[in-house]
Amino acid sequence: MRREIPLLIVFVFGIFMMFQYFVPHRVSSDIYQELNNWTIIIGIFTMVIGIGSLLSVHYSRIRFKEDGWWYSIVTIVAMVGMALVGLIGGVNNDLFLNLYRFGLAPVTSTMFALLAFFIASAAYRAFRARTVLSTLLLLAAVVVMLGRVPVGEFLTNGLPEPLRLSKISEFLLYVPNTAAKRAIYIGVGLGVAAVSLKIILGIERTWLGGDGGK
């Protein structure tokens, strides 16, 4: 009962979703849509658990006056405030949009911009040309980076066109990079198919719990 019903659910719905892909009928696509909606609804319930967990972590930090506890007040107030503004006023009201445009968006893009510095320092440590392979990696990265900025064009302006950094960078991105990505994508496709089949057939059971759901 504890293992059999979940395994049966996975098998029945998994097989249905797999085969409906090949059935271009309205009934099939309607059921597909309904089941997809169910996953969205269940997903939202899991998000409630996530938000509950976030609140409980920050509440306990405030309660026990842990180091930096007042930051937790900021998190809770920001979450409740943003949620209330969106829930009451709708997602198209000015305050909600401004909080997104001037609060959330600048910080997320600055965080990603900050990664430029950390990637550079990580690259310095990782890309030291010690082997042929790391030298290839380093050269490809340097050529692509220089080939996409004006200084790269300026440096190789006197050379014949095929030898300019912008052209070599284009070649690297469209030829060897495409080949590498295709090999990886083909592998990913086969891997996902194999894992999905294992889950549907009940061979892969780790999701039932550490002991396989006994």
Binding site: T75, V80, M82, V85, G86, L87
Partner: peptide, 14 residues
């Protein structure tokens, strides 16, 4: 911390 809160609140509303 502000962004963690705003982000969670944003997704609740959305």
């Amino acid at each position: 911390h502000l962004i963690v809160g705003l982000s969670a609140g944003y997704w609740i509303a959305i």
